[in-house]
Simulated assay, not measured.
Amino acid sequence: MEVTVYGPLRSATGDKQVRVAFEGRTVHEALEALVEAYPRAEQYLYRHDGTLASSVRISIAGERVDLDDPCPADAEVTVHPAVQGG
């Protein structure tokens, strides 16, 4: 899958767009594949209790999706990481 990342998440992936090996299933599994490929991404996506940070936004082909939604192997995924501060 092709993943576009924004903000501080780029420091974890090293680039704005990266390819991640993914067989396709759910958005949750797609994020797991991203973190497996780029372990430093986890800190920008998840809280300390392992749940997805509430401000993380994920879209497939421009449409916002939830963790349980399907995600094909050839998806174009966009991830906006959690925003800190106020």
Score class of each variant (00 low, 15 high):
23 E>P: 02
60 I>D: 00
17 Q>P: 01
22 F>S: 05
44 Y>A: 00
60 I>W: 02
32 E>G: 08
57 R>V: 14
56 V>N: 03
37 A>E: 08
74 D>L: 06
83 V>N: 09
3 V>Y: 03
2 E>F: 10
64 R>I: 14
37 A>I: 05
7 G>I: 04
3 V>R: 05
11 S>V: 12
16 K>T: 13
50 G>E: 10
27 V>R: 04
78 T>C: 05
8 P>W: 06
62 G>R: 11
41 A>G: 00
76 E>M: 04
22 F>L: 03
80 H>I: 15
80 H>E: 07
80 H>D: 06
59 S>E: 10
50 G>W: 08
85 G>H: 11
76 E>S: 10
47 R>E: 14
52 L>C: 09
15 D>T: 07
32 E>A: 12
55 S>W: 10
5 V>I: 09
30 A>M: 09
73 A>T: 05
26 T>R: 05
84 Q>R: 15
52 L>T: 01
13 T>Q: 03
65 V>S: 00
5 V>P: 00
64 R>D: 11
51 T>I: 06
25 R>D: 13
79 V>Y: 02
25 R>N: 13
36 E>W: 09
59 S>Q: 08
21 A>M: 11
6 Y>L: 10
67 L>T: 02
46 Y>M: 12
85 G>P: 04
28 H>Q: 12
39 P>I: 08
34 L>H: 03
45 L>S: 04
12 A>V: 02
63 E>T: 13
26 T>G: 08
67 L>H: 10
5 V>S: 05
20 V>D: 04
81 P>S: 04
73 A>R: 08
38 Y>A: 04
34 L>D: 00
40 R>T: 09
15 D>K: 15
49 D>K: 10
81 P>F: 00
55 S>T: 15
54 S>C: 11
2 E>Y: 08
5 V>K: 03
59 S>V: 09
85 G>F: 01
60 I>T: 02
77 V>R: 04
49 D>H: 11
31 L>I: 07
49 D>S: 13
74 D>G: 08
66 D>G: 14
35 V>P: 00
57 R>E: 12
11 S>A: 15
8 P>Y: 08
43 Q>W: 09
58 I>M: 03
83 V>Y: 12
52 L>Q: 03
43 Q>R: 15
4 T>F: 07
67 L>F: 07
27 V>I: 06
80 H>T: 12
57 R>L: 10
48 H>R: 15
47 R>I: 02
81 P>C: 05
14 G>T: 03
10 R>W: 07
12 A>T: 01
34 L>C: 00
18 V>G: 01
54 S>E: 14
53 A>T: 04
29 E>A: 09
49 D>V: 13
56 V>E: 03
70 P>E: 00
77 V>F: 01
57 R>Q: 12
13 T>A: 05
15 D>C: 07
31 L>M: 14
46 Y>Q: 06
44 Y>R: 03
35 V>R: 04
38 Y>C: 04
25 R>K: 13
